[in-house]
Amino acid sequence: MIELVLIAILSLLAQLFLPWWSLAIVAFGVCFWRSSGSGRAFLSGFLGVALVWLIYALLIQLRTDGVFVGRMSELLFKTNTSVLPALVACLLGGLVGGLAGLSGYFVKQATRAQPISRTASRSR
């Protein structure tokens, strides 16, 4: 839960100033720092980013009239469905966040496991 909240807050701050993919660095870093399992790492990365993207997108959509988002849906997905862009955006952002979190977790595992694996290779 802490990971999820941290990813959400830090990725939000990062994306205000940095390119969109800074969210991946945040998710990676947080999950590298602490995460209790691969499933949880993916989930906190996914949800942390997806929620931020979804809420921000919906806020913009509600503040402006839906016509433009409908047009963009038509342009990108050939169907004028005003919820689609926000949905696809949050899935996409979530996927990148989740995979980055998972990478963070596995890299941590790999580095932690270093001595063991070295021993293993020596003994081979």
């Binding site: 969109w20 993919w21 993207w53 997108a57 913009i60 959509q61 963009m72 955006a89 996409l92 952002g93």
Partner: peptide
Amino acid sequence: NRSWGSIPAFAPLLSPFVGFWQNAES
């Protein structure tokens, strides 16, 4: 992060921080 032929770079376009959302005005 890159375009593929006439398909635009999807993530920066869909990101609410930098994408088309930023062009929505009221």
